[in-house]
Nucleic acid binder design. Structure first.
Length: 172
DNA sequence: CCCTGATTCGC
DNA sequence: GCGAATCAGG
């Protein structure tokens, strides 16, 4: 892809609007963020204030954040006694399951994660792609929280998306 | 590790 | 002129 007048104009526009090089590259298509940055330099466009890593272009402050659930799991540590025998192995496994259940229920009942309010162009392989709001409206965005193992959703929205079975009833 | 922009340098 | 590789910072 080469730099047609159109593409250069779009680059100038988006850059002046404060979009990051990678965002611009994504929107132009066919070029890397390096290409965008290189072009910006060649055009002698004004760089981003403050050298090195700057950025964080206009953060809308942070909206109300949900209170964090206490981390009970951290306290429910090992309390195993002497265990040169094989029976204790079984006990440990049970304990782990209980902890897992606690975490699960805490998450299921309380946690409503705040979204990072990402735009489409900001999504990557490991950001939650759960849409929020009306796509036709301006405030539409994506969750954007970390999604484990390249899942399309964060752990919270993955549960909403792939409702297993028993949980279904409780939510309804 | 994710991201950002800046710079270099072979093409 | 172009942009991948590299550097440097958050």
């Amino acid at each position: 892809m080469n730099w047609t007048d159109e593409r250069v104009e779009k680059l100038k526009k988006l850059w002046s609007e404060g979009l990051s090089a990678s965002q611009i590259a994504a929107q132009l298509g066919g070029v890397s963020r390096n290409a965008v940055i290189g072009k910006v330099h060649r055009l002698s466009l004004p760089g981003r204030a403050k050298a090195g890593g700057t950025t964080t272009p206009a953060r809308p402050k942070r909206t109300t954040s949900a209170p964090r659930a206490p981390n009970y799991a951290a306290r429910a540590v090992t309390r195993t006694v002497a265990r040169p025998s094989g029976a204790t192995v079984l006990k440990e496994e049970v304990a782990v399951d209980l902890v897992a259940e606690q975490e699960f229920e805490l998450a299921a009942n309380i946690v409503v994660p705040m979204s990072r309010r990402l735009e489409l162009t900001q999504l990557t392989e490991r950001t939650c792609k759960w849409p929020i709001g009306d796509p036709l409206k301006e405030e539409f965005h994506f969750c954007g929280n970390d999604s484990p193992e390249s899942s399309p959703y964060c752990s919270y929205h993955a549960r909403l998306a792939y409702q297993p079975s028993a949980e279904r009833r409780r939510i309804r």
